[in-house]
Amino acid sequence: MPLTALQERFIDTYTSDPRSATAAYVRAGGSDGPGAKVTACRYLQHPAIEEGIRRQQERFRQEQWAVRDELFVELKGIIHSPDCSASEKLRATELLCKLFGLL
């Protein structure tokens, strides 16, 4: 059975900010009543929604790796460029270290 539009929006809102399933449910357009928490919990246990969340998280991870790769190439180019100053190279090295969690 396909997901409803509300369930699809829930996947998007919950994946972008997973701190509160209830808040994600309400932001997706669900009712902000006493049953919101119960419905949000049910959504998190729904197999198709779980799979949708996993797919969305994986897509975000892939996008982050792509951006990280682009930054790596750009910063490496600055570090090895004869046209950049020592301070620019030092800053690029610092940013590269931060990118890889070395600082």
Rank of each mutant, 00 (worst) to 15 (best):
E8Y: 08
R9T: 10
F10R: 02
F10S: 04
F10I: 08
F10T: 06
D12L: 12
D12Y: 06
T13D: 07
T13S: 04
T13C: 07
Y14S: 00
T15S: 09
S16I: 03
S16C: 05
P18L: 09
P18I: 05
P18E: 05
R19Y: 06
R19G: 08
R19N: 12
S20Y: 08
S20M: 12
S20D: 09
A21F: 03
T22H: 01
T22A: 03
A24I: 10
A24C: 11
Y25K: 08
Y25M: 06
V26F: 01
V26D: 02
V26C: 02
V26R: 02
R27K: 11
R27S: 08
R27L: 10
R27E: 10
A28P: 00
G29N: 07
G29D: 07
G29S: 07
D32G: 13
D32E: 14
G33C: 11
P34Y: 12
P34T: 13
G35A: 10
G35D: 09
A36Y: 02
A36C: 07
A36I: 06
K37W: 02
K37T: 09
V38A: 04
V38P: 00
T39R: 11
T39I: 10
A40N: 01
A40M: 04
L44H: 03
L44I: 06
L44F: 03
Q45G: 13
Q45K: 15
H46G: 01
H46Y: 05
H46W: 01
A48P: 02
A48S: 13
A48T: 12
E50A: 07
E50P: 00
E51A: 08
E51Y: 05
G52L: 03
G52H: 00
G52V: 01
I53G: 01
I53K: 00
I53A: 05
R55L: 15
R55M: 14
Q56T: 08
Q56P: 00
Q57A: 10
Q57N: 10
Q57W: 06
E58V: 11
E58T: 13
E58N: 09
R59Y: 09
R59W: 13
R59K: 15
F60M: 07
F60H: 07
R61H: 13
R61K: 13
R61T: 11
Q62F: 11
Q62K: 15
E63S: 12
E63N: 14
Q64K: 15
Q64C: 06
Q64R: 14
W65V: 13
A66M: 12
A66F: 04
R68W: 04
D69L: 05
E70Y: 14
E70I: 13
L71W: 09
F72Y: 14
F72I: 05
L75R: 03
L75G: 00
G77Y: 02
G77D: 11
G77I: 05
